[in-house]
């Protein structure tokens, strides 16, 4: 089943229960950071934090404090998976994009490729892994919702069949046109993502990347380069072959005379 999660940014109160739940489910250590003039804590996603709530103080249009849940978007056609030379990142039937540390060679091309800058790396070990949210793949296979979704006291995240969550997003926007921005972030970005967002503030003000092409990333490399390479090589071979043929024929003629 194609799963998805709708994140309704208007509902979040910034309690960080989801962060704790994610850590608990994945046995990740606590992170100790100093407050740095900002309540976002830890400061950014890393090998030890698959998700976090970003505290965004809106200084431009009508002042507001917003809390944005960050984690992997689980793209429908993930750039990271298409980038990986060994297929260590894969999109599963349950919609999660998961990682196989045994296959990975540590080239870190997935980090360059992901439009949302999600994959993080264990820089300080000798056998490093890529780390990122796995959509609680094991839980959803067992029919449970992801840990962060379950832990949320405000029901910010709505987990369900992808079609239903899109319908729900549209319904909320339609019923409260004054409250919501008429945009579903993730519906089209990078060819569509399994996690989608709705908000009452413009997404660019909340730090969402708005310049992500609304098309499948894997197709960019496939269409422009990889699918053509065999043909180009065949053409090259033909050109080289005929050059060689023409030249040797000329040489032979030259010998006879």
């Amino acid at each position: 089943m194609a799963n998805g999660v709708l994140v309704d940014i208007t509902k979040c109160i910034g309690c960080r229960s989801c962060q704790i739940a994610c850590k608990a489910w994945h046995s990740l250590d606590a992170s100790y950071n100093l407050m740095n003039g900002n309540l976002t804590m830890p400061k950014e996603l890393n090998d030890n934090n698959y998700t976090l709530i970003e505290f965004k103080e809106n200084k431009t249009s009508n002042r507001a404090w917003k809390f944005i849940k960050k984690q992997c978007f689980h793209c429908k056609e993930p750039a990271c998976a298409s980038a990986c030379p060994v297929g260590a990142l894969r999109k599963m039937k349950n919609s999660s994009v998961i990682y196989d540390q045994w296959l990975c060679i540590g080239c870190r091309y997935c980090m360059i490729a992901c439009p949302f800058n999600i994959p993080k790396y264990e820089w300080n070990t000798t056998n490093p892994w890529i780390r990122k949210c796995d959509f609680c793949d094991d839980r959803i296979d067992d029919g449970l919702e992801p840990a962060c979704v379950k832990a949320c006291p405000m029901k910010v995240m709505y987990f369900g069949d992808y079609k239903n969550i899109v319908k729900e997003a549209k319904r909320r926007i339609k019923n409260n046109p004054d409250k919501y921005i008429n945009y579903i972030y993730g519906e089209k970005e990078a060819g569509g993502t399994s996690w989608i967002y709705i908000s009452d503030k413009p997404f660019e003000e909340l730090g969402f990347k708005m310049n992500i092409p609304k098309k499948s990333y894997p197709l960019i490399t496939w269409k422009n380069s990889l699918s053509k390479i065999l043909w180009e090589e065949a053409g090259l071979l033909a050109i080289l072959g005929s050059l060689l043929y023409l030249r040797t024929r000329k040489d032979k003629k030259g010998d006879k005379n």
Binding site: S82, A83, P85, V86, G87, L103, Y109, P218, L226
Partner: peptide
């Protein structure tokens, strides 16, 4: 472990 959709693989 082939992944022919990856440019890195090709390289």
């Amino acid at each position: 472990f082939w992944q022919p959709h990856s440019v890195m693989f090709e390289i």
